[in-house]
Nucleic acid binder design. Sequence first.
RNA 1: GGGGACGUAGCUCAGUUGGUUAGAGCGCUGCCCUGUCACGGCAGAGGUCGCGGGUUCGAGCCCCGUCGUCCCCGCCA
Length: 631
Amino acid sequence: MLDFLGNLERTNMCGELRAADSGKQVVLMGWVNRRRDHGNLIFLDLRDRTGIAQVVLDHDLIPDGHAKGEQVRPEYVVAAVGKVRLRDKDAINPKMPTGEIEIEATELRVLNDARLAPFSPSEEAIQNEEVRLKYRYIDLRRPEMQRSFKLRHDITLAIRESLSKQGFLEIETPILTKSTPEGARDFLVPSRVHSGEFYALPQSPQIFKQILMISGFDRYFQIARCFRDEDLRADRQLEFTQVDLEMSFPKQETVFGVVEQFMKAGFAAAGIDLPIPFPRITYDESMRQFGTDKPDLRLPGLIDARPAFTDDTLATLQIDPALPVVALRIPGVGELSRKEREDNHPLFDQKKGAKFIDDFKRLAKGFPEAAARVRELAGAADADFVIVVAGDPAHHIKASDTKFPGRLSEREINVYAAAGNFRAELAKKYADRHGAFKVTDEVVQNAAARGISERNGASEPIDGSKAFNPMWLIDFPMFEFDLAAAKWMPAHHPFTAPIEADMANLKSDPASVRANCYDLAMNGLELGSGSIRIHRKDVQQQIFASLGISDEEARARFGFFLDALEYGTPPHGGIALGLDRIAMLLAGASNLREVIAFPKTAKAIDLMAEAPTPVSEQQLKELHIRVAAKS
RNA sequence: GGGGACGUAGCUCAGUUGGUUAGAGCGCUGCCCUGUCACGGCAGAGGUCGCGGGUUCGAGCCCCGUCGUCCCCGCCA
C-alpha cells in the first residue's frame, strides 16, 4: 500500500546532514538506494541529488514503519520522518559525507513503488550504452551523472555571469529560420502555411548575431542551441550548445581577452584554475607539430625525421623525398608484437597518400643508422613506441601539389594529418600505458572530490595548467583549392574577413591570403572558432567574387543580410565555443553523451524517446509532403 | 558510403580443438537475522548464446548475410 504525501514537507536534503545537525527533527524524501534488512532492524539508504543518508527502522520503536520497510525495494520513493542522531563510534562510516549521523525514523511513508530496473543507480560498473540510453531516467540518477549536470550548470552560470559583467547582452535568435552559411546539412522544417517551403534550423546564430551588431547592441551573447545534420562522433551530436558571442569594434586580441575571462570563470566554477592568456600557434605550425588544428599538448608532438634518412634510403623505402618525413612517439607503450602492431593498422588513414613504418626491428636491419637516428631525434626512451609517417609516392591522391611560399601544400598537410590522426588514435588506445591523460583525470577528480558543486568555487581552485592545454590557432588560410570543382573554396564561412595586410593578394595569390579567424583548441578538441567579419559591402562582394559565388546566389542565400550591411555596419567579430565540449572536459568524460541529458546514438537515434519515427498520412498531407520509397 | 571492436541470464563477464544437461559474480524471489553500510546465512528462479541462413552426425564456437551499440574515415569546422 502506498502512502500519500499529505502535509509532509521536506526539511533537508539527504546529502547535507552532518554531526552538527544531531538532535534535529527532519523530513527527508528520496529514492531507496539500498536496503539492509537485519530482521528487527532495517537500514535504508535514502538518496537524492545531494547524496545519501542512512535511515534506521527499528521494530521496537516503530513496528508500522518497520513493516513498511520490509516491503520497500530499491528505487521506491519514500519519505522518512525522524531525528538526526550521532552514530556510535564503531558505526561511523568514514566513506560517506553523512557517515557520522543517521536518521532514527519515527515514520516512514512509501510515496511510490518502482519496477525492478534493468540496472541500479548504485551500481559501480558502467552499463552498456544501449541500456543506459533506453532507461536514461535511471542512468541520470547515478551520482556521477547528477554531478556532471550540476557541474555543467555551474559552468554555464559562471560563463553567463562573466559575459554579462563584460558588457554582453543575452539575446535570443530564431530556431525556425533560414539556412545559415556554415556548410553542414540543414535540418529542414516544412511549412504548413506555405506549401513546398521549408524553414531551416540554425547551424549557428551567425547571421543574426552579425545583424545584432548592425542593430547597435555592441556586445551580444547567447547560450545557443545549434543543429547540424551530419554524422555523429564522440564529440559531435546533431544538436549541441554554443556559447555564442559577437562584439563591435574588436581586434582579434579583444575577442581573445573576452574568451579567456569567461573560460577562466567557467573553469573556476569547476574548481580548476586555468592560467591566462592562452598560448598561440599558427595553423601551419600546428599542422607541422601535431598534424592537426586541434592539438593535444599532453603528448609529444610530431618530430621532423627527414634528417635521419638519405635520399637513397628514402628511394629504397619508397618514400616520397619531397614530402615530410615525421616520427610520432607514444611514451611507455613498450615493444609491440607483430600482431599487436597489425591490429593498429586500421587506425591509420590510408586515403591520405601517406604510409608508415612501425616495425623498427626490421628498419634497423636494413638501415641501422636511420632507425637509431629517428629514435634519437624523437628523444625516444626504450619503452617508447615510435612510428615513421611519410609520403607514399605510389599513392596518387587528388591533392594540390602547388607550393606557396611560406605555406604548406595540401599534400604536405595530408602527410602531417595522417601522422597526427594516427598519433591521436594510438594515444587514446594506449592511454593506460603512457598515463598522459591521467593527469587530467586526477585534477578533475580532485576538483570534484573537494565538493566543488556545494561550494560554488568558494575556495582556491586547483592548478589546471598540467591537465588542460588551451591554445589559440591563428593565421588560417582564407581559401582551399577544390580540385574536383577546380575553384577556390572558402575555408570558413564567407563572412570571414581576410587579414588586412593580405588583401592585396586576393586576386594574384589567393593561397597566400590569411583569414582573420581563430580557433580555440584544448586537449585534442576544437572548443570553438570565430573570426573578425567583413563589415564593408565592397569587400564582401570581392570575397564572393573570388569564391565564385554569383550575385544571384548571394542574393538568394543572404539577401537580407547584404541589405543590412549597407545601413551602417560597424566593424565586428566574435566566436562560438562548444559548451558541451567544455563541460565534457571538466567532467572528465570522453563523450558528449555524458553531459547531454538526452543524447542520440551514433546512428542519430534517441533510444528513450524512440525518435525519429514515421508520421501519419494526415500530418504529411497537411505539410504537402509525400514520402518517396527508399532508394 | 567505408574500416575496426563488441553482442552469451536483468547487469558485468567466462565458455578449451566444434562434442552430453551453457557457467560465475552481482542483482532478483522466499525464509532467517538488532548495528549494517558492496551487511550476512540458507534455499530458489532466471538462457531463442542479437536475428536469419549455411557447413557438419553435432554449432555459443566455423562460413555467409543482417540488425544493434561504440570508435574512426568520409562528412562536419
